[in-house]
Design a protein around this nucleic acid. Structure first.
Length: 427
RNA sequence: GGAAGGGUGUCCGAGUGGUCGAUGGUGCAACCUUGGAAAGGUUGUGUGGGGGCAACUCCACCGGGGGUUCGAAUCCCCCCCCUUCCGCCA
């Protein structure tokens, strides 16, 4: 949620900044007006409440002294009625102000490109080069079939489309990747690992902004009113909901492996082949809680941490800075990491690293006690480190050998019992 | 699933209709004491919001939401959560 004070005190600049994200001036003006109305009503009702408090106190004293208080009671009752009326108006104003504010995205960082969608994203850097080999690279489905890694049809039988089954050395590779990434984050990059619940309550989903807007993208259990997490960001970030951290403990860096569950309503038909878009997938996520003065510097570090995973796996990738129109709602600045998939002949997003400034923390009510003793909102960041299915796709396609085997990156071999290659099944 | 007991400030814990935002202890901070420390002493220490340049002032908050009342931490209703015991169980 955006800071209403920015709209109140610096309307022109805030509206101009939001215009980059295609927010109508009208919406910002509406927030400003509702805020003014709200404050007017607060002044009015609080003035009356002060009167009522004083009068009630006087009645209390009079009763003790045995005086007649009937007339005074009548008087105060009238004040009470008026207070109720104004409070009702105030509640309405506050609700619509909140709704309006929730419909306003975060202020974009000045340096990000302005544009309507992904077409205006900027490639910041590209790591490595890709040279097509002398043989043709099939897509990951075909590669997987020769190696016996996946069973898509039986996934459909068990659950439905978008719930792949990973088998044998594929399952082992996936497990190795997860373990390698967690070890890298924890042993080298200063993270603490968390193994959180994969199911959360409504308050948590609301805290990180999945609810109320994106309910149709989530799996929900009616009996308990629980939700399946679409990303580890939800439990890990909500860990500090309604909490006050010590400034000395910042930055707090948490990482978690979890499965992610996404209904992907309305996405039918887009990139649905194999592992490219699925309803359940594994991901390792990184979440940072940082001092406001360091958040954008921390974002660069975070991107670097995700990149290190890809670099150590010997993969060719690029880094995009997202334009104002393509960024997630809560982000002030966001980088995507994309792996080249030569079999698919396209770039695949495997990580999204975002700085949310105080936008997410305000809704989460996550603060820290600064050196001056005051509580302030922390800044939050998160990044995938990284998502598994598309990583598997790119890894299989980039490391494929002509004989159908796939070379296992060196850093993974200790997790694969020393194996150097995934070998095709015997005919 | 059944039964009982609870949710109050950093924490513990008192408070059952009227200066209670809330006694006391603890924690924290500053100072006094000391060669230094401990102990002891003094003082100060919640959050959010409105108004004000400020000093300051007002309002709200005792799990959440309604209600009764001139007045609610305290009485009534609904909901949530926790603990203990029993049952079931990986």
């Amino acid at each position: 949620m955006i800071d209403i004070k920015k709209i109140r005190d610096d309307f022109e600049a805030t509206a101009a900044s939001l215009a980059r994200r295609v927010v109508e001036l009208e919406i910002v003006a509406k927030a400003r007006d509702l805020d003014a109305q709200r404050r007017r009503l607060i002044a009015e009702t609080e003035d009356l409440k002060a009167k009522r408090n004083a009068a009630s106190k006087a009645i209390g004293l009079a009763v003790k002294q045995g005086g007649d208080v009937a007339a005074a009671k009548d008087e105060v009752r009238k004040i009470g009625d008026r207070i109720q009326e104004i409070d009702r108006e105030l509640a309405i104003a506050e609700t619509s102000l909140r709704e309006t504010l929730l419909s306003i995205p975060n202020l974009p960082a000045p340096e990000i490109p302005t544009g309507p969608d992904s077409s205006t994203n900027v490639v910041v850097r590209t790591h490595g080069e890709w040279h097509d080999p002398s043989f043709k690279i099939p897509d990951h489905i075909e590669i997987g079939a020769k190696l016996g890694l996946f069973d898509f049809p039986r996934g459909v039988k068990l659950t439905g489309t978008g719930f792949p089954i990973i088998l044998g050395q594929g399952a082992k590779l996936q497990r190795a990747l997860i373990q390698y990434m967690l070890d890298l984050h924890c042993q080298k990059q200063g993270y603490t690992e968390m193994l959180p619940p994969f199911v959360v309550n409504t308050a948590s989903m609301t805290g990180t902004g999945q609810l109320p807007k994106f309910a149709e993208d989530l799996y929900h259990s009616n009996a308990d009113d629980f939700w399946l997490i679409p990303t580890a960001e939800v439990p890990v970030t909500n860990y500090y909901r309604d909490d006050i951290l010590d400034a000395k403990s910042l930055p707090v860096k948490l990482t978690a492996y979890t499965p992610c569950f996404r209904r992907e309503a309305g996405s039918a038909g887009k990139m649905t082949r194999g592992l490219l878009r699925v309803h359940q997938f594994d991901k390792v996520e990184m979440v940072n809680f940082v001092h406001p003065s360091t958040s954008f510097a921390q974002l660069e570090i975070l991107v670097g941490e995700a990149e290190e995973v890809l670099q150590n796996l010997g993969l060719h990738y690029r880094v995009l800075m997202l334009s104002s129109g393509d960024m997630g709602f809560s982000a002030a600045k966001c980088y995507d990491l994309e792996l080249w998939a030569p079999g698919e002949q396209q770039w695949l997003e495997v990580s999204s690293c975002s700085c949310f400034t105080d936008y997410q923390a305000r809704r989460l009510n996550c603060r820290f006690r600064d050196a001056d003793g005051k509580t302030k909102l922390v800044h939050t960041l998160n990044g995938s480190g990284v998502a598994l299915p598309r990583l598997m796709v790119a890894l299989l396609e980039q490391h494929l050998n002509e004989d159908g085997s796939v070379t296992i990156p060196e850093v993974l071999r200790p997790y694969m019992g020393g194996a150097e290659r995934l070998e095709p099944l015997a005919k």
